[in-house]
Simulated scan of single mutants.
Amino acid sequence: MKIELKPLNTSDFSIVVEWVNQHDQDFLMQWAGPTYQFPLTVEQMEEHYSKGINSLESDVYLYMIKDLTNNEPIGSFQIGRFNMINKEAIIGRFLMKDEGYRGQGIGRRALYQLIQMGFEIFQLNRIKLNVYDINKRAIKCYESVGFRKGKITENVHRSLKNEEWNNIEMVLNKESWMNYREGINFL
């Protein structure tokens, strides 16, 4: 499947809300941390992005992952919290439409494209992301494009199943990326 990243519009918030609400509040916590209340609503997203989206002034760019064979949206994520002094930003809110799109390398290819934009278009030197330790698939995906585990913050969330989750900050430096991407052959 060929994919492409397209800027997500506020009119697409309803699609993201639908995808998230197919799951439970623990899923919402994995996706967005404590930002929202379950069930997610378009109004919550509009309030959260009240400064706008897709500009340096808003400090966040949201992207829809599109299947080019039918132009169908199949996922989304964002890059934001830009620190232009240190030339770094954070990737977050990575979401695939449903389980059928996981495990096929689609997320990895989309992440690769976003990282490439971060280093080439935004001229970043470092990209970070946060992931809960229970999300093994996501960690594997992030590591497959060069992210490495960094700081771990323990017991940041207690799940509905009474499990303690630890937060892992993962980091990818531009220099490492430039060396690492030569060995990536899934595109």
Rank of each mutant, 00 (worst) to 15 (best):
K2V: 02
K2D: 03
K2W: 01
L5H: 01
P7G: 05
L8N: 07
W19T: 03
W19K: 03
V20A: 10
D26N: 13
W31P: 11
A32G: 15
G33H: 09
T35D: 12
Y36Q: 10
Q37V: 13
P39M: 10
V42A: 13
Q44D: 02
M45Y: 04
E47Q: 11
S50F: 10
S55G: 10
L56M: 10
L56D: 12
E57P: 09
D59R: 09
D59W: 13
V60Q: 11
Y61C: 02
L62H: 10
L62D: 03
M64V: 10
I65Q: 05
D67F: 05
T69S: 15
S76K: 07
I79H: 04
N83I: 08
N83P: 09
I85R: 14
L95Q: 04
M96S: 13
G100F: 08
G103L: 03
R108S: 03
A110H: 09
Y112M: 01
Y112L: 06
Q113Y: 02
I115Y: 00
Q116N: 04
Q116E: 12
F119G: 00
F119P: 01
E120F: 05
I121S: 07
F122W: 12
L124H: 02
I127A: 07
K128A: 15
N130L: 12
Y132P: 06
Y132E: 11
I134H: 11
K136M: 14
A138C: 14
I139Q: 10
K140F: 14
C141P: 05
E143G: 08
E143K: 14
S144I: 00
S144D: 07
V145C: 08
G146Y: 08
F147V: 04
G150N: 13
I152C: 01
E154C: 13
N155A: 15
V156C: 11
V156S: 03
V156G: 05
S159Y: 15
K161W: 02
N162K: 03
N162A: 04
E163V: 07
N167Y: 01
I168T: 04
M170S: 02
K174E: 14
M178Y: 14
N179S: 14
N179A: 12
G183L: 15
L187T: 04
